[in-house]
Computed example of a mutant assay.
Amino acid sequence: MELLSSIRRNSIGLGIFAVFTAGLIALTQLYTKKTIENNIIAAQVAAFNEILPAQLYDNDLTQDSALLEPDDLLGSKEPVKIHIARKQGDVSGIIFETIAPSGYNGNLYLLVAIDKNGTVTGSRVISHKETPGLGDKVDLKKSNWILSFANTSLSNPLEKDWGVKKDGGQFDQFTGATITPRAVVRAVKNTLIYFEQNKASLLAQ
């Protein structure tokens, strides 16, 4: 009898502990989920501010967004998200979440900001799996290479110069790594082409 009573007491104690622990985990997840979401938004805002001049927009870029149909020019078979910059209600630019699908170690995910005139105001590689010390120089934390796209357009440079220097273009490649910068150059150029082909509908968002 004493053994059964002991087992019963222990079972009740373990049950109470399990309920308490589950509740604590649920509360922790609820709290951290909001914190993580806030951190993601803050990181987005910081990235947007780096690639799109603040004077070009007065809206909340994290809230003003839309999905585009999949398009090879944007490197995706899935809908592509854009963030719409507005100044006094008029579209002043678009930030594309585009993809460079031909990196050395897989896809590279980019933000490419283009103003209403078709000029790149800035770009960033936000996710990649490139080799440390080689292809990872597309990351601003590793080098300033990605800054070379600011103020470019389909006419500046000329189409023949939209490539890495090894291919006769104007953009630098990295020592021992040409595939990755080539993929990023192509992705930025293709995003500009997409913008130009769909300019009317994009600016009418």
Rank of each mutant, 00 (worst) to 15 (best):
E2D: 15
L3Q: 11
L4R: 07
R9N: 03
N10L: 14
S11D: 14
S11I: 15
G15Y: 09
G15E: 04
A18S: 15
A22I: 12
I25A: 13
I25T: 07
T28W: 14
Q29F: 14
Q29T: 11
T32Q: 05
K33D: 14
I36S: 07
I36N: 09
N39W: 00
A42E: 14
A42D: 15
A43I: 07
V45C: 05
A46E: 15
A46I: 02
A47Y: 01
N49L: 00
I51V: 05
P53Q: 02
A54I: 14
Q55M: 11
Q55E: 15
Q55R: 09
L56I: 08
Y57A: 01
Y57H: 01
D58E: 08
N59W: 09
N59F: 10
D60Y: 06
D60E: 09
T62E: 06
T62M: 01
T62D: 01
Q63G: 15
D64E: 10
S65I: 14
A66C: 01
E69Y: 05
P70C: 02
L73N: 08
L73K: 05
L74M: 06
G75F: 00
S76R: 06
P79M: 00
H83A: 04
A85T: 00
A85C: 01
K87L: 12
Q88W: 04
D90K: 13
G93I: 03
F96M: 12
E97N: 13
E97S: 12
I99G: 05
I99F: 04
I99N: 10
A100R: 03
S102A: 14
S102M: 10
G103C: 05
L108A: 09
Y109D: 10
Y109R: 12
L110D: 03
L110A: 09
A113W: 03
G118D: 01
G118F: 01
T119V: 15
V120K: 10
G122N: 13
S123E: 02
R124Y: 02
I126C: 01
K129C: 11
K129T: 10
E130G: 04
E130Q: 02
G135T: 08
K137R: 06
V138F: 07
D139F: 10
L140P: 00
K142G: 03
W145N: 02
W145Q: 01
W145L: 00
S148W: 01
S148G: 03
N151C: 03
N151T: 10
T152W: 11
S153H: 01
L154W: 13
S155R: 11
N156D: 13
P157S: 07
E159P: 08
E159H: 13
E159L: 14
K165S: 12
K166Y: 13
G169M: 12
Q170N: 09
F171L: 10
T175L: 07
T175N: 08
G176D: 02
G176T: 14
T178G: 02
T178Y: 02
T180K: 03
P181F: 04
P181M: 00
A183H: 04
V184G: 14
V185M: 05
A187I: 02
N190M: 08
L192A: 12
Y194N: 08
Y194G: 13
E196S: 14
N198Y: 06
L202R: 07
L202G: 09
L203Y: 04
A204D: 14
